[in-house]
Computed example of a mutant assay.
Amino acid sequence: PPEQSLEWSDAGVEGAHRFLKRLWRLVNEHASVGEVPALVPDTLTGPQKDLRRKTHETIAKVSDDISRRLTFNTAIAAVMELLNEVSRLGDDEPQSRAVRQEALDVAVKVLSPIVPHVCHTLWQTLGHSETVVDATWPVADPEAMVRSEIEVVLQVNGKVRAKENVPADIGKADLEKLALENENVMRFTDGKTVRKVIVVPGKLVNVVAN
Score class of each variant (00 low, 15 high):
56 H>Y: 12
42 D>E: 15
98 A>M: 06
164 E>F: 00
144 A>V: 08
139 V>K: 14
4 Q>L: 15
44 L>E: 01
114 I>M: 13
113 P>R: 09
112 S>T: 09
76 I>G: 04
71 T>I: 13
152 V>E: 04
75 A>W: 02
25 R>I: 04
23 L>T: 09
178 L>P: 06
196 K>P: 02
178 L>D: 07
88 R>C: 09
11 A>C: 00
125 T>K: 14
206 N>W: 09
8 W>D: 02
101 Q>K: 15
149 E>F: 11
6 L>D: 11
159 K>I: 12
125 T>M: 13
180 L>H: 08
27 V>T: 03
124 Q>K: 15
131 T>A: 10
21 K>T: 11
167 P>C: 07
185 V>F: 00
187 R>D: 12
200 V>S: 07
151 E>K: 11
176 E>W: 04
199 V>A: 06
168 A>T: 14
31 A>K: 02
184 N>Q: 15
18 R>V: 01
38 A>G: 02
88 R>P: 00
102 E>M: 10
135 A>R: 05
76 I>C: 05
70 L>Q: 12
35 E>C: 06
47 P>W: 02
15 G>T: 12
122 L>F: 08
90 G>D: 15
44 L>R: 03
157 N>Y: 05
209 A>E: 02
123 W>S: 00
84 N>S: 13
153 V>T: 13
135 A>H: 04
85 E>W: 04
210 N>A: 12
126 L>G: 06
89 L>T: 06
64 D>I: 01
37 P>E: 11
98 A>W: 02
208 V>Y: 11
89 L>W: 06
106 V>R: 01
184 N>Y: 07
79 V>E: 05
101 Q>N: 13
188 F>N: 13
48 Q>P: 02
1 P>T: 12
102 E>G: 00
33 V>Y: 13
162 A>Y: 03
20 L>F: 12
49 K>T: 10
60 A>T: 06
107 A>Y: 03
111 L>C: 11
38 A>T: 13
46 G>W: 01
103 A>C: 10
167 P>V: 08
191 G>Y: 11
55 T>M: 08
96 S>L: 08
105 D>A: 06
78 A>T: 10
187 R>P: 00
183 E>F: 00
75 A>M: 05
88 R>D: 15
55 T>E: 07
172 K>F: 03
115 V>A: 15
